[in-house]
């Protein structure tokens, strides 16, 4: 266990950055949720229906923030790690433990994403008193997690900051509408989409990175131009 965290921390080097990722950003978002939840409660006295719809929108907003922060911060952790012509991994490659180390770091990172997202959305929805059923909540958590992972695939394969911004914009633009649709519980969305996102994409993303890393041992393979 300690090995996994140590490996992850090689990529997440600065102690203050660790503080931000583990504590500050979840805390801030939860505080925001609490604050907004209060405001909404006040608003309930004015209009109950409007307040209810606001709650959901606010939760979706919270999700947008999560996605933005996660994808943006990853630039400083694994940014561009799977780009072509990079020799960032060469030192790791001189040891047989190099690629396994990268694998451990990626796994720890995935777990950390899931945990942060679950905590923020879980407690966030309570703070916002959205009165979502646990199943709906779970659905949203899985969906956001999958979306973040999808975004990360893009940002880790390209090294320019511009790509990060474009990806972020696209995802956060479609996020609120997607969550609303998700909760409508139409068959395709409710079952297949979360499955795809939460299970296939995280593994796909990591598999792609490791494949690139293994291929970097070979100069001439065509797969190198993935």
């Amino acid at each position: 266990m300690k090995q996994y965290i140590k490996s992850y921390h090689l990529f997440l080097t600065r102690w203050w950055f660790r503080g931000i990722i583990y504590l500050v950003y979840p805390a801030l978002l939860l505080l925001l949720a609490g604050f907004l939840g209060n405001k909404v409660t006040e608003f309930t006295w004015i209009s109950y229906e409007k307040a209810q719809s606001y709650r959901l929108v606010l939760l979706e907003l919270l999700c947008s923030f999560i996605v933005s922060v996660e994808i943006f911060c990853d630039y400083f952790i694994f940014g561009g790690i799977a780009t072509k012509e990079t020799n960032k991994l060469e030192y790791l490659k001189t040891s047989v433990k190099g690629i396994p180390l990268l694998t451990k770091a990626l796994i720890t990172d995935g777990m950390r994403h899931l945990l942060s997202i679950a905590i923020i959305i879980g407690f966030g929805s309570l703070l916002l008193t959205t009165a979502l059923s646990p199943l709906d909540c779970l659905l949203i958590i899985i969906f956001v997690f999958g979306l973040v992972e999808a975004g990360l695939i893009v940002t880790r394969h390209f090294s320019t900051l511009l790509i990060q911004y474009i990806t972020l914009s696209v995802i956060t633009f479609f996020l609120p509408a997607s969550i609303t649709l998700l909760l409508q519980k139409t068959i395709a969305f409710t079952i297949w989409l979360p499955l795809l996102l939460a299970i296939i994409i995280p593994f796909l993303g990591r598999w792609l990175i490791l494949k690139k890393a293994r291929n970097s041992y070979y100069d001439n393979r065509p797969e190198n131009s993935l």
Binding site: T13, F76, K88, E90, Y91
Partner: peptide, 10 residues
């Protein structure tokens, strides 16, 4: 290596 082979933010 003759070039940098560490992760740049290390």
């Amino acid at each position: 290596s003759s070039t940098n082979y560490f992760l740049p933010h290390w």
